[in-house]
């Protein structure tokens, strides 16, 4: 479990995160949603130790990472997997080499075992056939899947995903969402996903945190997000016409049923 306590982050006097308190549970997909510029990515960067918060605390299994020594932080990072918005695959390495990379760096396995593990991870994301291709030779969706395979190669305890669906078609987005949810449940990881894709939120969000202008505005589950009374969250959720129409249809059905009753 990851806990965030009274987290504040300022950039040159401008408050980007304002007194954030949150808990990210193990074995669940924890989603951070919000408009662009709401502080989601800064919060994620604080969580993974790429950005130091101005004040507050971040605890991994009750252990604070604030002021942690670089060597200890590096050790902790070996328990983290990260899926970047642009996949961040190494251009000069093949798909298989990309997945093998964390194993080459940190595992004590033999070359054969490392290869076997990488092949297993690629099979897990249904990419067994792409071993020898380079990132420039595969599609955006395949790149995301390779990035997931690389992220889980070392059996991490924590998985961070920065807008995993950006730039993907709805079908591929759904595939990536399902993969993230399945892997989280399978490995019992603490997964944190940043997204502003409401389809993802409804599909896989076990715990949802809504950030607005650096403030934690709302917390809840995917069943509650459509029926909230929070205006700012409603503005965000129903900015899409599709969701607005779904809500209107849903309200109409509810009204008809209550009239009948």
């Amino acid at each position: 479990m990851i806990e965030v306590k009274n987290l504040i982050k300022e950039f040159e006097g401008r408050i980007v995160l304002n007194n954030i308190n949150a808990e990210f549970e193990k074995g669940k997909v924890n989603m951070i949603i919000g408009k662009s510029g709401s502080g989601k990515t800064v919060l994620l960067k604080c969580l993974i130790g790429l950005v130091q918060p101005t004040s507050g605390d971040i605890l991994y299994e009750k252990e604070s990472i604030i002021g942690m020594k670089a060597s200890e932080m590096n050790r902790l990072r070996r328990d983290m997997g990260m899926l970047f918005q642009g996949s961040a695959l190494f251009d000069s390495k093949t798909v298989l080499e990309n997945v093998m990379f964390p194993l080459d760096m940190f595992s004590r396995m033999s070359r054969r075992e490392r290869r076997k593990r990488a092949e297993f991870c690629l099979e897990r994301v249904n990419l067994a056939e792409a071993h020898n291709l380079y990132p420039s030779e595969i599609s955006g969706g395949m790149m995301k899947r390779v990035a997931i395979a690389r992220a889980i190669a070392l059996n991490p305890k924590y998985l961070f995903c920065d807008e995993p669906n950006s730039g993907l078609d709805p079908k591929t987005s759904q595939l990536i969402d399902e993969l993230i949810a399945d892997i989280t449940a399978e490995y019992g990881m603490t997964t944190i996903v940043i997204s502003h894709d409401m389809n993802s939120v409804i599909n896989i969000g076990d715990n949802i945190i809504f950030l607005n202008e650096g403030i934690k505005e709302w917390v809840g589950g995917r069943d509650e997000v459509m029926y909230t009374t929070n205006d700012k969250l409603n503005d965000f959720v129903f900015a899409s016409d599709l969701f607005k129409k779904i809500k209107e249809a849903d309200d109409a059905i509810t009204m008809r049923e209550s009239a009948k009753a």
């Binding site: 790429l50 050790r75 990072r77 070996r78 983290m80 642009g86 251009d91 940190f106």
Partner: peptide, 18 residues
């Protein structure tokens, strides 16, 4: 520079690689 702007260096750092 390309590795920096495409987050490949961040990916290395997250893995705990110097």
């Amino acid at each position: 520079g390309s590795m920096r702007i495409t987050e490949q260096i961040d990916a290395l750092e997250i893995m705990g690689v110097n």
